[in-house]
């Protein structure tokens, strides 16, 4: 229902009395209104929807979600299996350059 993408805030400026920002999406740059994220700082990531920053990404929370599952992966690796319970050496990755359907 609402496409919103995280972009790195690289510059803050003013336009027609509105606080605006320049954001970086892996090299692509666009502008967004920052009126709804008044305390955002350059370097933080804003969630941008249709030209507006509607939220600021919480770095700690993102890390928590990620680490929760990375631990599972580590535990599985110690048992000698990959995360899906498959023995480590025969992962389902195809050989380099060769494609099997």
């Amino acid at each position: 229902m609402c496409l919103a993408i995280p972009g790195k805030l690289i510059e803050i400026y003013d336009e027609a009395g509105m606080k605006m920002g320049k954001l970086d999406y892996a090299g692509t740059i666009n502008t967004a209104c920052l009126e709804y994220v008044p305390d955002i700082r350059v370097g933080q990531y804003a969630l941008v929807h249709a030209g507006f920053a509607i939220g600021v990404v919480d770095e700690e929370e993102a890390q928590k979600t990620y680490e929760l599952w990375a631990e599972l992966e580590k535990a599985a690796a110690e048992e000698g299996t990959d995360i899906f319970g498959m023995p480590l050496d025969t992962g389902d990755e195809e050989r380099e350059g060769e494609v099997s359907p």
Partner: peptide, 20 residues
């Protein structure tokens, strides 16, 4: 892209699938 690619990681996705 930061905060997108991490949450598209197939290994993490499959770990959650296993839990489901």
């Amino acid at each position: 892209m930061k905060y997108l690619d991490e949450f598209r990681d197939p290994r993490l996705a499959k770990a959650i699938v296993r839990e489901i």
